[in-house]
């Protein structure tokens, strides 16, 4: 009987411990960090092997602003400037997609070149985009100490740098714009902003099917009829999938903080929001291959036909998506 009891006790202990997650072993300092998720946003998935901590987040933030990651003097923040929504306005190259709310994202880059977790995307950035010389990080006593403190490691790898960066990306969350406050009944929109909102969220403008109410992107790919002919290098998602049905499709960009940008669409062909609105109003190329069905509804064959007042109101609504608290949040700027 004594043996049986001890066997049962041992079994119960095994059951108990087999259910318990073992995390953060070998991590000298682990101060749990709770992400401030904006109201109405989904819960964020955090991988067990990169749980949020104050030390890891601080390290990720430092890396984001440090040109040590690159070999040409650039940091992430060189092209992702907080004051304009962690993007960059430049007439050169492909328009920079903003670093906002990417903790919920699965499709990255304009053509969805990466469909992966945030950690995997950061590994791409470190290993393939910046081609980080990891020896430089390992030669830095400061970074060696910080990585040891945050992750309990003595040799830094590309993966470790990527994991730290992912921590910082998970707090780059914009969800406190005037529109968000309106939805939380904290303030009112002006009559014109409200009219613009109604255009946006009804079939009058039909913006909402691709730019949903929370993220203002559906995280999907569409051909909205920008072009009717396509050439190698500008064929959109097709260049990733090889599927002819993806010719001309690009990722829906978020409209949060779009007021601050001066390059729009995947090739930056428009420099003002007025031009973007006018494109949808009168400029959609309806014969474009793979054009989204919503762009070629026969009832809208002549475009949206918005009046000038409606266009003005729509623009005013788009400006309510500017999140000044996010743009000036001192927790997100370059660490001192």
């Amino acid at each position: 009987m004594e043996k049986l009891i001890y066997s049962l006790l041992l079994g119960l202990l095994l059951i108990t411990f087999s259910c318990k997650k073992v995390v953060n072993d070998n991590t000298p300092s682990f101060t749990p960090y709770q992400i401030d998720i904006p109201k109405r946003f989904p819960a964020m998935e955090i991988p067990d092997d990169n749980l949020m901590s104050v030390e890891r987040l601080a390290l990720g933030r430092k890396l984001y602003y440090d040109p040590i990651l690159s070999n040409d003097g650039r940091a992430c923040a060189t092209c992702h400037i907080q004051q304009i929504g962690f993007t960059k306005n430049s007439t050169l190259g492909v328009p920079v997609l903003p670093h906002q709310n990417l903790g919920w994202n699965k499709n990255f880059l304009w053509k969805g070149e990466k469909n992966c977790t945030l950690e995997e995307m950061m590994l791409f950035e470190v290993h393939d985009f910046f081609v980080t010389d990891i020896a430089k990080l390992n030669a830095s006593k400061e970074y060696k100490d910080l990585f040891y403190k945050a992750y309990g490691i003595t040799t830094i790898t590309h993966k470790d740098a990527a994991y730290a960066l992912a921590q910082f990306f998970r707090v780059l969350n914009s969800g406190n714009s005037k529109f968000d406050k309106y939805r939380r009944n904290e303030l009112s929109l002006t009559p014109n902003e409200r009219n613009g909102m109604i255009i946006f969220f009804t079939e009058r403008g039909d913006c909402f099917h691709c730019h949903n109410e929370i993220f203002f992107t559906d995280n999907d790919f569409h051909n909205t009829g920008l072009d009717s002919t396509f050439f190698p290098g500008s064929m959109g998602r097709y260049e990733v999938t090889g599927n002819a049905n993806d010719i001309g499709k690009y990722k829906t960009p978020t409209l949060r903080n779009c007021e601050l940008r001066d390059r729009f669409m995947h090739d930056g062909r428009f420099s003002t929001l007025e031009e973007v609105i006018e494109f949808y109003n009168t400029g959609v190329k309806q014969t474009s291959v793979n054009i989204d069905p919503l762009m070629v509804l026969p009832e809208k064959a002549l475009g949206l036909q918005l009046t000038q007042q409606e266009k003005n109101d729509l623009l005013l609504f788009l400006k309510t998506l500017t999140d000044t608290a996010f743009l000036s949040n001192k927790q997100l700027n370059a660490p001192q």
């Binding site: 989904p42 909102m197 969220f201 009804t202 909402f208 949903n212 109410e213 993220f215 999907d220």
Partner: peptide, 9 residues
Amino acid sequence: INMGWPDAM
């Protein structure tokens, strides 16, 4: 979220 039917409708 993508399946949302806007309050305006």
